[in-house]
């Protein structure tokens, strides 16, 4: 096994997902098969690979100009609850 249930649960915590232990076990098995395949990368020599040259890169920038998005009703139409211009959400405890 490359990955065990505890590791799956740790990753789930990072990803904000929940799995029952049975689900985690199933996922660990699937991961095993997938990660097994990932071993195939080991066989490819990569030392000779150049990183893409800097001349090739064209940095994309925009001008510093301010524009206001006017239609706020549209902008917040998917928000569950607004209050005095704020987005109201369930209590966030620090």
């Amino acid at each position: 096994m490359k990955i065990n249930v505890e590791e799956v649960q740790h990753i789930a915590k990072l990803a904000k997902l929940r799995f029952t232990n049975e689900e985690a076990e199933k996922m660990a098995k699937e991961f095993d098969s997938i990660l097994g395949h990932f071993q195939s990368m080991e066989e490819v020599p990569l030392e000779d690979t150049k990183t893409s040259s800097k001349e090739e890169i064209k940095t994309v920038l925009r001008k510093d100009e301010a524009v206001i998005f006017e239609d706020k009703a549209k902008l917040f139409r998917n928000v569950k609850q607004m209050r005095d211009g704020y987005i109201q959400v369930p209590k966030i405890i620090e």
Partner: peptide, 13 residues
């Protein structure tokens, strides 16, 4: 979707 999120989270962790 969950499987890919898990896989991706793992690969970056």
């Amino acid at each position: 979707v969950k499987r890919r999120i898990m896989l991706g989270t793992y690969a970056l962790s």
